[in-house]
Each structure stands twice: as C-alpha cells, then as structure tokens.
Amino acid sequence: MPYRYLEDIALADAAFEAWGTTVEEMFIAAADATMNVMVEELATIHRDREIRLEVEHDALDILLFKFLNELIFYKDAERLLLRVESVTITRHPSLFTLHSVACGEELNPARHALSADVKAVTLHRFKVEQTEEGWKATVILDI
C-alpha cells in the first residue's frame, strides 16, 4: 500500500504520506489513504456505483486538496465510500484539470468496519513534491 500514517504530528487528527511513480498514482494512493482512515478494510468496499470526479486548479497541490475533498463530500452527501480507479491530469498553460473515475457503494455498518470520520483536508503542512522515485504528498486530515 503506497501510503503510511505519520504518528508524530497532529496527534488529534490523521496525517499521512502517499506516493506513486507518477503524479496520478500518487493521487490514487492519497485517495485510498483518506478512505482508509474511515474504513478499516478497503477491500470490503464493493464496486456498485461509478462516479466521475472532475476538478481543476492552477496549482497541483490544491488540485489534490480539491480531489480529496470530493471523496469526503460524497461520503456525507450520498453516504458513498469510494475507491479511485483512474486519474488523468492534464496540464494546460495555467491550469491543471483532473478527470477521475471512482467506484464504490453506500456505506453499510454491517459490512464495513468504520473508524473515524474525516471532517476535512487541512492545508497545515500540506505538500505535493517530486522525489527521486516519483511523487509524494503529505496530508493532515481533520478528524
């Protein structure tokens, strides 16, 4: 699993690092890391519904911020637990656009071992960076 939770910062919340060879892979890893705070076994989420997510921003890090916020939105608005299956990011002269397909199902406490609810993505220490191996994001979620 291409993410790990950080224990020495923001004790009351949930901090993680997610990575990938490409920026798109890293976005998918960050989505799973966010969902895994709420659902203990991601494999228990069935592929019943498909949702298309589209966000845009002129900064790549805020693009990730908005993307993760979409998942949190669907969790509350439609009680949907989603796993991101594909991400395509296009760079325009002064804009990044993201198209993504996410699949999942309505949460069911009988089948999904639920953990803490994610309230929001914070911008505290929020970082997207290119590394020797690819891309890495550092994110603190408000619990």
Binding site: K66, I72, L123, F126, D142
Partner: peptide
C-alpha cells in the same frame, strides 16, 4: 458535514485573495 464544507469552501476563497488582493502572508496556509 455542513460546517466542514463551509470552512473548506472559504479556506479556498481566502487562499485565492489573501496575498494577491490583500498582501497578507501567513506562516501556515491553514
């Protein structure tokens, strides 16, 4: 979720105008 979304929405509004329009810099984007 309502309150969380209000804060998330305006965090982005402020981020867009804080420095460009009002010349304010902060030590943490949060």
């Amino acid at each position: 979720g309502f309150g969380h979304q209000v804060a998330t929405d305006y965090l982005q509004t402020f981020l867009a105008v804080m420095e460009r329009k009002y010349g304010i810099r902060v030590g943490d984007r949060e």
